[in-house]
Design a protein around this nucleic acid. Structure first.
Length: 140
DNA sequence: GCCAACGTTGGC
DNA sequence: GCCAACGTTGGC
């Protein structure tokens, strides 16, 4: 199983909205970036991801699970763009802020730190464990 | 609100 | 195929 990170501006699509979709999940649509799309194409059902709030919060606030593999993005007729569906699994007991991530040398190689603009990114197993620890949240 | 970094577009 | 111009993102 692979790990990922999904980034969203809470004013556009927030964790609370994601939770409200329940187990049915929701398309992670609107991505118009090839790198991000290519990562979504690699995702498999059951893969886990962090849900990150950019802008005001700048923190990882929850864990999501991929519940549909890449398919065409319903928000555009342009067939280049695809997206997966994700559903909320559980919130972080304590959100992990960007400041915390930057301060932890074990996370120095995270894409979030190296390329903050990429909206869908891979997370390593080690990074996953470290961040779940910081957030006092089950990693399973 | 500013600005740096990055990705995309389009003219040549 | 290169590169300048432009638009967008996101941290500060």
């Amino acid at each position: 199983m692979a790990y990922w990170l999904f980034k969203s501006e809470p004013s556009t699509w927030s964790w609370d909205q994601q939770v409200a979709k329940g187990n049915a999940g929701e398309e992670w649509d609107g991505v118009r970036n090839y790198q991000a799309r290519n990562f979504m194409r690699q995702m498999q059902i059951g893969d886990r991801g962090f849900f990150y709030h950019s802008q005001k919060d700048k923190a990882i606030v929850g864990i999501v699970e991929v519940c549909a593999e890449a398919h065409s993005d319903s928000t555009t007729d342009d067939e280049r763009w695809e997206c997966v569906d994700i559903k909320a699994v559980r919130p972080f007991a304590t959100p992990v802020t960007l400041d915390q991530i930057k301060a932890d040398e074990r996370l120095a190689e995270m894409v979030l730190v190296k390329n903050s603009r990429l909206s869908v990114q891979p997370v390593s197993d080690a990074e996953w464990q470290v961040i779940c620890g910081l957030g006092q949240t089950e990693a399973d």
